[in-house]
């Protein structure tokens, strides 16, 4: 086992560092409190959505409804949570529970998660349009304050990313129940044999995903101050890419919360980096994909070398 395959966190960290160095080199003014905040501002909701996706990938499923779900949460935050906080909180809690129920149903009926979540993405999307037919709404004041707070020394976006990474690391990697959840991804049968109800564990993983999805939607509204039914659709693919960039794997319960947050930061930074390069917007999405392929290729090469060495 090589050093790199044992410490799978190194490659995401190096990718982020290289991209950050290139950005600073092209645009030295970004190397400031304000610059960093601007660079990583929109990374906070993406990081939260990535963590949500990670919870699902952790139990060997995949969630194609993350983007639609975050959009729905954003619409509810910009309307109900702002106008009638209690109703808003109840609706969001119900959404988390419905996510948990979705996980239980997927396991109990042995349905493919990819189909169920794809179907649910249309339900979330429809509900979002129903709540907010045209772009609008406004962010609750406290949320706006929270997302624009200016802590000393460290910009909010960076501080928030660190907090998300630490909290999810404790939850998933260090805690006992997190270990069992990762065990479900590794070998669900052995977890079931040890006396655990895998249906409940899956419901818990999906419930956590719903919770982080809700946080992502709220964070997004806090930054943009208004919502739109399609505001976060691209989060589905961004979150999957973030998990994989951060050293996670699609199967086998191999995920890294810290890596996932770093992956989300890398993806956000890649977009800014391409703008700094004055690349025409038409090419940016393609170039972003190229960066993704580059990092994944690097990872594959290291993983191949690992066992051979």
């Amino acid at each position: 086992m090589s050093f790199l395959s044992r410490h799978r966190i190194i490659l995401p960290v190096v990718s982020l560092a290289v991209l950050l160095a290139l950005t600073f080199w092209m645009q030295p003014r970004a190397m400031s409190y304000f610059g960093l905040n601007l660079l990583f501002n929109l990374a906070v909701p993406i990081a939260l959505a990535t963590v949500a996706q990670m919870m699902i990938i952790m139990v060997n499923d995949i969630d194609l409804s993350t983007g639609a779900f975050v959009s729905l949460v954003a619409c509810i935050t910009a309307t109900f949570l702002n106008d009638a906080p209690l109703t808003g909180v109840l609706i969001l809690a119900a959404l988390v529970l419905s996510y948990a129920a979705m996980g239980a149903v997927i396991h109990a009926l042995d349905l493919p998660a990819i189909v169920v979540t794809l179907g649910m993405s249309f339900v979330w999307g429809g509900l979002a349009l129903f709540v907010l037919p045209s772009p609008g709404g406004s962010s609750p004041g406290w949320l706006r304050t929270l997302m624009t707070v200016k802590p000393p020394y460290i910009p909010m976006a960076v501080a928030a990313s660190i907090i998300i990474a630490v909290v999810t690391h404790l939850l998933i990697v260090r805690s006992g129940i997190g270990t069992v959840l990762r065990g479900v991804g590794g070998n669900a049968q052995s977890v079931a044999r040890a006396g655990w109800q895998v249906t409940w564990l899956k419901a818990l993983a999906y419930g956590l995903a719903g919770l982080f999805g809700v946080f992502a939607g709220m964070a997004l509204v806090g930054l943009t101050t208004s919502a739109d039914a399609n505001i976060a659709l691209r989060y589905t693919l961004l979150s999957i890419a973030g998990v994989i960039l951060g050293g996670g794997e699609f199967t086998g319960g191999k995920v890294s919360p810290v890596g996932a947050v770093i992956g989300a930061l890398t993806l956000t930074l890649a977009a800014s980096f391409l703008s700094f390069m004055r690349l025409p917007p038409d090419w940016q999405i393609g170039a972003q994909g190229a960066i993704l392929i580059l990092v994944l290729t690097a990872r594959l090469l290291f993983a191949r070398k690992g066992p051979a060495a």
């Binding site: 006992g176 270990t179 069992v180 990762r182 065990g183 991804g185 590794g186 070998n187 049968q189 052995s190 977890v191 044999r193 040890a194 006396g195 655990w196 086998g252 319960g253 191999k254």
Partner: peptide, 19 residues
């Protein structure tokens, strides 16, 4: 029937109610 993604010690956690 171990979980290959967990460490040896973490695998003990799965059937161990006291941890």
């Amino acid at each position: 029937s171990l979980c290959p993604n967990l460490t040896v010690a973490e695998n003990l956690r799965i059937p161990h109610p006291g941890l």
